[in-house]
Computed example of a mutant assay.
Amino acid sequence: MSEIQKHGDRQVENDEIDLLALGKTIWSKRRLITYIVLIFIGVGLFVAIFSSNEFTASTTFIPQSSDSNRGGGALGGLASLAGVNIGNTVMSAEIPPSLYPKITSSVPFKKALLEAKVTPEELGEEVTFKSYILEHNSPGILSLVKKYTIGLPGVLMSGIKGEKAETITVATNDGLIRITREEYDIFRIIDASLSVTPNDKEGFVALSFTMSEPLMAAQMANQTKKLLQSEVIAYKLGNAKEQLKFTEERFAEKKEEFEKIQNRLASFRDRNQNIASAAAMNQQDRMEAEYNFVFNVYTELAKQVEQAKLQVAKDTPVFSVIEPVSVPNERSAPKRPLIIIIFTVLGFIVALAYVFGSEFLKGVKEQWKEV
């Protein structure tokens, strides 16, 4: 037998000895391991029993809108009078569904969502979502335990520092938005409750809202959907409305100019009815040419105003609802069997880590004593 084979056999024997030693260690500490696992199972049962039920209301819709080839809009029509073709330009201001989560996570959107009107079943009257969270939403036992045990130092520090009156400043393009600490805390609740998932492949958007009461979850899902669609419509129509405003302003200016030259030409004709001089005829021809040009521009702008009004209506996005919001009948959380399984596995891992860690420290102490 070669030396390599002997070394390999010894290695296998050592591995078997190590495994046997580990098995003996686990067997000798079986009671301790059992106690630790049982403690974790008890904690898991407590968490599973006292965790408040959560209900998720959802909806699915498809955003639809038509892109328009405007041919340069009002400017294109005016340019065509001069024989200039500026081409067909697609004036699109679409918000892709992939950006919908960015909209719902923005501070202005969440501030608007705080003012959403809801009607809690236990109140029977309409209140804002902010008022409901601050005054009527009672946390579960587990939330209170977490707040006044694990979160007690933070609560004390907040009281000492006076963070309840603190405001948080968020910069935006239009200025500064100031949010209070209470609003910030509600924003965190919204972030944990609201989910917006666009499906770029299929073209639909799934929106869901989770709360402890099924009716409230359904109402908030519906309010969030309406607010999101309003934001998308406002953004989409912004370009069309700006173009309508610009065209109407140019139309008003050209209308005033047209009326002035129309009055001048009428006055000139009244004054020179019986005059047949060449100079008068030339001046009349120039005024008529100017009148015709202004009239053509004025007529074209009138058409463009009507087209811009139609474009505003055409650009308004339409949302086809595939799955409307409904009040959920079954809770979405907590998953109690899964919680118990997780705590059981976690307890077994902690117990093994404690046993092996104790044995390791014991061996290290013995080595130090020998030295």
Rank of each mutant, 00 (worst) to 15 (best):
T180W: 04
L361M: 12
A192I: 05
S320T: 15
A276H: 09
S131R: 05
G44I: 02
R31W: 15
P120K: 04
S212T: 12
S92M: 06
E249T: 14
I41D: 02
N274H: 08
F319T: 06
T169L: 08
R331G: 03
A280Y: 11
A82F: 11
V297F: 04
K236W: 05
A353M: 14
V312F: 05
E13N: 07
D315V: 07
K255Y: 05
A278T: 15
A353K: 05
F61Y: 10
S332I: 05
P139Q: 00
I189V: 14
R271Q: 15
Y291V: 00
A165Q: 14
M287R: 02
E248T: 09
N14G: 00
E259Y: 06
D315F: 09
E256W: 00
E231L: 01
E135C: 02
A279S: 15
A21H: 11
A112C: 00
K245I: 11
Q304T: 06
K29S: 13
R70D: 10
A333Q: 02
Y100A: 04
L22F: 09
K164Q: 12
I342W: 03
A351Y: 02
E257V: 05
S58I: 04
S105P: 01
M157A: 13
F295V: 00
E300G: 09
A48K: 01
F258N: 01
G87V: 05
S230R: 08
K254M: 13
Q11D: 10
I342C: 06
A279I: 09
E3Y: 13
T104P: 03
V43I: 15
F187P: 01
E126S: 15
I4P: 00
A74V: 11
R286F: 11
L32K: 10
Y184T: 03
P328I: 08
F129C: 01
D270N: 10
I95D: 01
D185H: 07
V364H: 06
S326A: 13
N88W: 03
S212L: 01
E323N: 09
G76W: 02
T59L: 06
K254A: 03
T167N: 13
T34V: 13
S320K: 13
L237K: 02
V47I: 15
K226Q: 13
Y100Q: 01
D174W: 08
D200Q: 13
E166T: 14
Q283D: 12
A165S: 15
L123P: 08
F50A: 00
G363C: 03
I177Y: 05
K110F: 04
A57M: 07
A280V: 15
I349M: 15
L99N: 14
F293E: 08
G347P: 03
M216K: 01
K111F: 06
N263L: 07
M211D: 04
F348K: 00
P337E: 04
G44R: 01
I190M: 07
G87W: 08
P63E: 03
I49T: 12
N282F: 14
A240G: 02
N296L: 09
G23H: 10
K369T: 08
F129E: 00
A278L: 14
E359K: 11
N263K: 11
S105R: 11
W368T: 03
T60S: 10
I26V: 15
Q262L: 02
M1C: 04
K147H: 01
L346T: 11
L144G: 00
S158I: 05
P96N: 14
N239Y: 12
V118D: 05
L20A: 13
D18E: 12
Q262Y: 03
F40T: 08
V318D: 07
R250M: 12
S98G: 08
I4Q: 11
I340R: 00
L346F: 15
T89R: 12
